[in-house]
Structures are given as structure tokens and as C-alpha cells.
Design a protein around this nucleic acid. Structure first.
Lengths: 104, 104
DNA sequence: ACAATACATCGATGTTCGTCGAACATCGAT
DNA sequence: ATCGATGTTCGACGAACATCGATGTATTGT
């Protein structure tokens, strides 16, 4: 695997970010990542096919939310710290509202 | 026009709300509504066909964000006050981030 | 060299979306 | 009864989406 594309944060629109966060599977990924550490892409067990998860990872990247760092055959995923500078408070607000009651 | 359907807020998921807010035309509607008053559906001039606007109004209703009150041949639209109880701070956060720089 | 691993990408499928024009329904006014 | 205004709904369209299995591609380990 050789270098995945990460957009400049300035080119990520609010629509892009909200659309990325509107999917429950993707929010589940982001929720895991809020511990601030890197996680292996393969460690997410969200009940979707491997190719589907890869697709969601791409959308999260394109939404400026996550960073993917290939490492050998594997891929480390983490939150993009600059995201909060572009959309202050958005992640905290959305994840704070993402509970059993509001999830779907 | 006879009584449009408004979902119970408890049945509106975070995904529904975020998807409703992910569209720039719909956010433009919500932005106008933040003055707290009712607005005529026809007063929104957002550069889309009338039928398209009606479609967006429907999605905003389904997202639990707005309320539509038919009145004769016209339709008054306003924010649903209970929305903020279901998703505290979401509207304020999203609209606060919806600037020239992040819009698209 | 070879096989296995971990992920991306491709191709396909069915669904949803945003958009439009046209048709329809309701109401107020003439 | 008719007309015009205001919205909704319908039907259609291309684009995008979520999903899958299969294939491709590096890389690590044997």
C-alpha cells in the first residue's frame, strides 16, 4: 500500500464533514478513535465486509476526519488533530449526542 | 394542503438529523429560521425549483428540525423547539460552523 | 522464490439523493 | 364557477451511496 490521499482541511466543506458523520458505521469508527491512539484498520469489527469498511475509511479520510498511515501490509488509523481547528467542537458535539437512544 | 407529517422526535436518529443538515440548501433554510419566527415557504429564494425546495422542506421535517404549518394556500415554516432537547447543541454548533469558509 | 497477510480497488447491485418539469390539490378572490 | 397563487406530489433522470465478492498489490515471513 502506498500513500493514501488526505485532502487539505481547507478544502473540506461542512457538508463533507457532516455527510461523513451521518453514517452510523463511520461514527462507530470515530468513537473508537477518540481514545486518541492509532488503531489498526483490521481491528474494527463492525459487521460489514472488509471492502465496505475500506470504503468507509476512505470517506472518513475525505471528510478530513481521520488519517490513515500504511505500515507494511497494515494500516494505522487515527483522528486528524487539525479537524477540530477547522470545525471546532463538531466532533465533540456529534459524538456526545451519539448514544444508544439516538443511534441507528 | 392538509396536515403534513412530522415525526416524533424520539424516532429521529442522529443519522437522520445529520443527513438533513449535510445539505447546504437545507442549512440555508435553517439559517433563516434561526430568528425564531415563522417564515413563508415561498420567501426562501435559494435558486432551486419550487418542487426542489418542497423536497428539502420535507427532509427537514423528517429530520425533526422544522415544523410546517399550512395556512390556506401558503405554508409557514419554523424551527421545532423540541429539536434542541433531543440533540442539545447540535443546531447551534452546526450553524456556528456554517460560514463562508466552510460552506459549499 | 513462495505463500500468507492486510488492505485497496474494481465491478456489480440495489437504494437513496438532488434536481427538474408537469400534474395535482387547496384556498382566496373575482 | 372560474382563475390565480401557493405548495405538494409524481415521474423521470443522472449521480452518489452502501454493500458485497473478487481481484489486485505491497509487504512480511518462511
Amino acid at each position: 500500500m502506498r500513500s493514501l490521499d488526505h485532502p487539505q482541511l481547507s478544502s473540506v466543506s461542512l457538508s463533507d464533514a457532516l455527510a461523513a458523520l451521518a453514517d452510523p458505521t463511520r461514527r462507530a469508527v470515530v468513537r473508537v478513535l477518540t481514545d486518541g491512539r492509532e488503531h489498526l484498520a483490521g481491528d474494527f469489527d463492525l459487521g460489514v465486509a472488509q471492502s465496505t469498511l475500506s470504503h468507509h475509511m476512505k470517506r472518513l479520510r475525505q471528510g478530513g476526519i481521520t488519517h490513515s498511515r500504511p505500515d507494511g501490509t497494515r494500516c494505522w488509523v487515527s483522528l486528524r488533530p487539525e479537524f477540530d481547528a477547522r470545525f471546532p467542537g463538531l466532533l465533540r458535539t456529534v459524538l456526545g449526542l451519539d448514544t444508544e437512544e439516538t443511534r441507528s
